Measured scan of single mutants.
Amino acid sequence: MKGKVVSYLAAKKYGFIQGDDGESYFLHFSELLDKKDEGKLVKGSMVHFDPTPTPKGLAAKAISLPLE
Rank of each mutant, 00 (worst) to 15 (best):
G3S: 01
G22V: 02
P51M: 05
V5A: 01
G57S: 04
L67P: 13
I63L: 05
P55T: 10
S45K: 14
M46K: 11
L41S: 01
E68P: 12
L33M: 10
K13Q: 07
G3V: 02
L58A: 06
M46D: 08
A62M: 10
L32F: 04
Q18S: 09
K56A: 09
K56C: 12
L32T: 02
K43L: 08
A60P: 01
Y25T: 00
V42C: 11
D37P: 02
P66I: 15
H48P: 00
T52C: 13
G3T: 01
L65T: 07
S64K: 12
K2N: 10
S24F: 14
G22Y: 04
S30Y: 09
I17R: 00
F29L: 10
F16N: 03
F49G: 00
G3F: 02
K12D: 06
L58M: 11
H48F: 15
V6N: 06
S30D: 10
I63V: 13
F26H: 04
I63Q: 01
L65S: 05
L32S: 00
K56E: 07
I17W: 01
G39M: 13
G19H: 01
K36L: 10
A62D: 08
F29Q: 07
V47A: 05
F16L: 06
S64M: 11
E38I: 08
P53F: 13
G15V: 03
S30P: 03
K12S: 09
K61L: 09
V42F: 10
D50K: 14
E38A: 10
I63S: 00
L27C: 03
E31M: 07
K43M: 09
T52S: 13
S64H: 15
P66L: 15
K61Y: 09
E23C: 13
A62C: 12
A59T: 11
T54Q: 06
I17F: 02
K61A: 08
P55V: 09
K13S: 05
K43V: 11
K40E: 04
L32P: 00
G15H: 02
M46L: 14
S7A: 11
V42P: 02
M1S: 06
S30G: 07
S24D: 06
L67D: 13
Q18V: 12
M46W: 12
V5Y: 02
S30C: 12
D20P: 06
G22Q: 05
Y14H: 05
A59P: 01
L58C: 08
K2Q: 11
G22I: 02
D50T: 15
L27Q: 00
L58V: 05
L33H: 05
F49Y: 05
E68T: 12
V6Y: 08
